[in-house]
Design a protein around this nucleic acid. Structure first.
Lengths: 157, 157
DNA sequence: TTAGATAGGATGTCATTGCAACTAATTGCA
DNA sequence: TGCAATTAGTTGCAATGACATCCTATCTAA
């Protein structure tokens, strides 16, 4: 649709990449600002919420379900642990891995983080109907499936 | 709906954030791999294409139209210049501005980069009809408008 | 039992990106 | 005219995140 550069039939036209990237960067800023009071960065909240959703999860499982590199996971968990929100517990049956649990402070902060995330979500989805929003999520899921198939971290790391 | 954690009416339910972030990260990887032969990273291609779309643009204008911080722009342009794809020219009327142009090598590489981006786009949009894709883009644009309103870089940097 | 394979993690390095603070050039107002 | 404010761009620093590589613990097979 005329952006300056060409557009032969299907393939060259406007791509989601530009918007995905811009939205991602702005969301990072909004979330970081929202969670700064709890000393939780935009790179950690997703792990905190995932652990809240299933205590006793391992780093490997986190990496797989969030499609994030395991070393990134390791560093984020280390930060959450340093802040006192997450606790590691060696699995007595297999000392190679450690089970992740929330601390008291972690359990206290999770609802606040959830609220902050809701703030950001409601800002971001203003002017979009629930149906349209749900439809967009479905399409984004399809895109994610497509792109994660083509990268190393597609299913594991 | 239903991911493990709560969902009081509208606000807590599944959010685009998770998908945006995962798609962004995987796209970065795909694009970097696609453009590696030309020594153009995932952080530079968007500037190259924007300059191709309007030669003589300034860094300020790039930052505004791409919604990217001006310091990020400065660094990306420096890399493109170091690779010999972009050339800076001082504006004689106002020495604060530098006008950006493609070099010969830049003009040569642009179609190849466009092709690489098309590759990535077609991988990413597999299984999505043109209509649905266009609809998704519209929704993403709305989300971007929403989030960019709330950050410093909303209109400028 | 022990060598090799496997798996969870940790560490070092690099690219992308944003913010604070700075420089240099231009503009505007007294 | 002259100095303060504005504007374009740069530099230093920090956070996010991926990849390569290494360490250690566990498991498998000879």
């Amino acid at each position: 649709m005329s952006d300056g550069w060409t557009e032969p039939s299907a393939g060259t036209a406007e791509s989601h990449g530009k918007y995905i990237s811009a939205i991602y960067r702005h969301m990072q800023i909004l979330i970081a600002a929202e969670l700064a009071p709890y000393r939780i960065g935009s790179g950690q909240y997703i792990f905190l919420m995932a652990i809240a959703g299933r205590e006793g999860i391992t780093q490997k499982e986190l990496s797989e379900s969030l499609l994030i590199d395991k070393t990134t996971t390791a560093k984020a968990i280390a930060k959450l642990e340093a802040e006192g929100y997450v606790r590691r517990e060696a699995n007595p049956a297999d000392n190679r891995y450690q089970l992740l649990y929330l601390t008291e402070a972690g359990r206290d902060v999770v609802p606040k983080v959830q609220q902050g995330l809701n703030q950001v979500k409601s800002k971001a989805s203003k002017g979009i109907s629930d149906e349209d929003y749900a439809f967009m999520l479905d399409l984004l899921k399809q895109v994610l499936r497509n792109v994660s198939e083509h990268t190393r971290g597609g299913s594991a790391n």
